[in-house]
Design a protein around this nucleic acid. Structure first.
Lengths: 339, 339
DNA sequence: CACATTAACGCAATCGATTGCACAACATGA
DNA sequence: TCATGTTGTGCAATCGATTGCGTTAATGTG
């Protein structure tokens, strides 16, 4: 239990040098002679000195840390975004603290509070599925740090955001199904409180319209798009009769639906073609391999991170809304036999 | 850019009450009258006060935060462990900061340093595949906080750890293959610097021995067990001829191997039976569904977390090595037609 | 050689919250 | 009435690092 708390004052005493000089030396200040710097550095390692960031951050009023709030770590998409965020952040000398909201507004609030009281320099957030209002975020912004939204933006004035072209991607996916002969396409959609899922639904609807197909609210199943939801939706699909296409707003639900349907003797894609969203690694494992939409997750993380850091460093006031483009990845779950 | 920095002194002035009283009131100290507490609380919310944890932590010399180092967030196993850790930690009033080493020793060292200088109260770590020595961890321990290992323990005196019965699980898996008629079983093994993978290999070897099969070093392929490694190993397997069973030390490699082998016209499990390790969700999606070993990931996180917190709180000195038991989950990748 | 610069370092206040100790006001018991 | 408690607050030091400003000593300039 050696509670060895070596401070700059210990070094200071050991060397008979004022602690302010020690501090400057450790920060490689140019106003300290090379010789003294070396003596100090040596003594520091000798004593096993470890800077106390708490004290430093308190004094300077900055932590060089950005907070990242993510709905779920277990989603491949988010862990990739995080990797992107970390890469950019580390290069710029920032630390990253990761928190998961588990799609709960209450937890999101607690996390924001904790980040605030720990004085992170900025926050990257993908809001939870329960988050309808952004008051708690307002509170954060008013108290200081900048916020950048990624993936799931918030209808929020005066904040940068990075997202993908959900509407267009969705439109393209639905159209692709139609061009492959589907006439009765069902949509698995996420919570409509999120703009993200509203846009995806809109894209689906407009593609139908463009091709003269009738939109029917009964063909839309809304859920959190978990594994169990996909199964549930698949059951509904079978009851509907005549469905020949499914466009799911994520891969998880698409895949569990495929599994269920296959068990029920449905042929994919002959009877029902399926498209997912995200391009999770798992989508190449399912049989038939899932046609889906690939998002530039890593890149999204990098961009979000650099937008935030720019704001922190330069106190920039202009806000950007970056929209990245995704890509339809065609696999076997939509390949109709050519007639 | 309202840099509203409301401190206890602002409240103190606004109310004509000493800041020490304010501090005590905000901490709900019993030595402050209910009336004053209320006045202070009201004023605090009115001014939008947000405690500065940096100052508080500096003074009290504790952060109520535990650091978690994880090799990769993208592995389902680890994100589940994290959820377990968080649950227990939050209940006990601790914050959690998550860092990923990406299997790099260098990053691991940097992370340790950062956690140290941020004065986390304790660390939970699953060491990287490159970590052969634990000197950097020693440094941490000497400077204060307790460490608990999870999943991948380190040959390290005086630290608690939580892991699973790798040897037994491995033995059972291999034996299961043998009992299903396999006579020429290959092992995909992880970096032997990790005790974890050494144990899994040992279990494999001993099961062979028990059943009179000859162990052959050429039947062991060592790698990081990534997707590409699985494919590479599968190619080797085909060159070997006569292989009728694969026991992979993780699911990722097992699954990519299965995909490759199927493409090459190999029948699973008729020609080659396969067992993985981890029970990733993906193992129910691959066809045939993968027989694998399920680990109590969430539970592991909870236990690791509570072991650490006990050490932090009670300054316990005894160290525990908890070994959780895993379970063989039989699916289709090993079901031989009954003769 | 006198004076102006510059380089190198020390002094002391500061960041915001916590806490041991002192102290005042009031109540209680003998 | 006086000694002794009890409650509720205030005072001031403290955690460890940073930094504006002042002070030397060394160096340069004319």
């Amino acid at each position: 239990m050696k509670k060895s708390k070596v401070t700059i004052h210990d070094i200071s005493k050991a060397l008979g040098i004022n602690s302010s000089t020690v501090s400057r030396a450790l920060n490689d200040s140019s106003s300290i002679s090379t010789k003294t710097k070396q003596r100090i550095l040596e003594k520091a390692t000798e004593l096993g000195y470890q800077r106390n960031s708490l004290a430093s951050n308190l004094r300077t009023n900055k932590t060089n840390t950005i907070g990242v709030i993510v709905p779920r770590l277990s989603r491949n998409f988010f862990s990739s975004v995080i990797s992107g965020i970390e890469e950019t952040a580390y290069e710029a000398g920032y630390n990253v603290v990761i928190c998961q909201s588990l799609e709960s507004l209450q937890r999101e609030k607690k996390i924001i509070n904790s980040l605030l009281s720990n004085r992170v320099d900025g926050v990257l957030i993908s809001i939870s599925m329960e988050t309808t209002s952004c008051e708690h975020l307002m509170a954060y912004k008013n108290h200081g740090g900048p916020i950048v939204f990624y993936d799931r933006p918030c209808d929020f004035e005066d904040c940068s955001s990075v997202s993908i072209n959900d509407y267009e991607a969705s439109f393209e996916a639905t159209e692709y199904l139609i061009l492959n002969g589907c006439k009765n396409i069902v949509h698995f959609s996420g919570p409509q409180v999120l703009a993200l899922y509203r846009n995806r639904k809109k894209g689906y609807m407009d593609a139908l319209k463009k091709h003269g197909l009738i939109f029917n609210e009964a063909n839309c199943f809304e859920s959190m798009l978990l594994k169990k939801d996909g199964i549930e939706h698949a059951k509904q699909v079978l009851k509907l009769k005549g469905v020949d296409g499914i466009y799911s707003a994520n891969d998880t639900a698409a895949i569990s639906a495929i599994q269920y349907l296959k068990n029920q003797g449905v042929n994919i894609p002959e009877d029902i073609a399926v498209i997912g969203f995200n391009d999770d690694p798992i989508s190449t494992v399912i049989e038939p391999a899932l046609t889906t939409i690939n998002q530039p997750d890593f890149k999204m993380g990098k961009i979000a991170s650099s937008l935030l850091i720019d704001q922190i460093k330069d106190h920039k006031t202009e806000r950007d809304s970056v929209v990245l483009s995704s890509e339809l990845v065609v696999r076997d779950s939509t390949k109709k036999a050519t007639r």
